[in-house]
């Protein structure tokens, strides 16, 4: 539990993808009580019985045979169990949501209760068995384990979790403005959009869904800042041999997302200089310069006039691909 929390905290685990056992109130309680009785009678739980059978304990093999039979009884008598089995389905709540307390408080209480219980149980065991089952002895192992726990605690307290860390990083406007990022000029984007042979370009559109559905560039995908921290959308930022350009209405939004992505270790990320607002102004609503003086201005007139028509056509024909496909499929677990 504490380990899972730490992994989530440090961004190693996306809890949205982890199987959370469902809660069916009555069936959980009745099933648990039956298993408790089975514990006392059989002396094993399924896990320990398998282990014991593997080293040749005959009583464990009998137990396993019994448990096959138990499942069979449940399967054949399913109509009788079904109403209880499916009653009071509360979904997949997590205990701190049910109790309406913070996750940390629950974890702390659990660890505290467990330590106290272990201590007293070891006292009782000592009395009954007259055998040392040390729980509180100051040996190397225990000290090491305690140190590990303390280290984890200190790290979690001093380090913010990964998502807030990155979000905080880009709060500083000056930092974001001055961060060296590869920029793509509107002309380059226009060129790449109309170019057939160029390296693949992925446009990562950070605008909201409404704007995106109104119009979007070909090969673009709707993306949110939250997507950056999710596992499936991330795969999309890892595609090899493609360049990615972050686009939004304004450059600051692009910069923030691009900085976070780069800091997370993604590569080949560019931003559109001046944002889509600028792109619209410079390319999509381009008005040719009257009486171009330099050769540059002539070229620009020629290129942009052509690009304007072609890209308008591309946008018209482009069916928005919608948000990045989130196959946020939880792992299937449970028994």
């Amino acid at each position: 539990m504490v380990g899972v929390m730490a992994f989530v905290h440090f961004g190693l685990l996306d809890i949205n993808l982890v199987y959370i056992n469902p809660t069916f109130l009555w069936s959980a309680i009745v099933g648990g009580l039956i298993m408790g009785l089975g514990f006392v009678l059989g002396g094993f739980c399924p896990g320990t019985s398998v282990c014991a059978a593997a080293i040749g304990k005959i009583d464990a093999m009998i137990f396993i045979f019994g448990s096959f039979f138990g499942v069979l009884i449940f399967a054949e008598g399913y109509p009788a169990f079904e109403s209880l089995y499916k009653a009071a389905n509360l979904g997949n709540p997590r205990i701190f949501q049910t109790l309406n307390i913070s996750e940390n408080v629950f974890a702390f209480l659990t660890v505290f209760v467990a330590l106290v219980a272990f201590y007293f149980v070891s006292l009782i065991e000592k009395k009954v068995n007259k055998e040392e089952v040390s729980f509180f002895k100051l040996n190397k192992q225990n000290v090491l384990m305690a140190c590990f726990g303390c280290l984890l605690l200190i790290l979690s307290l001093t380090m913010t979790d990964r998502k807030s860390f990155f979000l905080k990083l880009v709060e500083d406007e000056n930092f974001v403005k001055n961060y060296p990022l590869e920029e793509m000029t509107p002309d380059e984007l226009a060129f790449r959009l109309t170019c057939q042979k160029c390296e693949q370009l992925r446009i990562i559109d950070l605008r909201n869904a409404e704007e995106y559905n109104k119009w979007s560039l070909p090969n673009s995908t709707l993306f949110t800042v939250d997507n950056l921290f999710e596992k499936e959308p991330n795969l999309f930022l890892k595609l090899k041999r493609t360049k990615r350009v972050f686009v939004a209405d304004d450059e600051m939004t692009e910069r923030k997302a691009a900085i976070m992505a780069l800091k997370m270790g993604y590569k080949e990320i560019k931003i559109l200089k001046g944002g889509l607002d600028n792109f619209t102004k410079e390319i999509l609503q381009f008005e040719p310069i009257k009486e171009p003086k330099t050769i540059d201005e002539q070229y620009r007139n020629r290129f942009r006039t052509k690009a304007k028509i072609e890209i308008a056509e591309l946008i018209k024909n482009n069916k928005p691909q919608g948000p990045v496909e989130k196959k946020q499929k939880r792992a299937l677990g449970g028994c």
Partner: peptide, 11 residues
């Protein structure tokens, strides 16, 4: 005990 675990673990 095994039978009870079989039924109980399903519930």
């Amino acid at each position: 005990g095994g039978i009870l675990w079989g039924v109980g673990s399903q519930l």
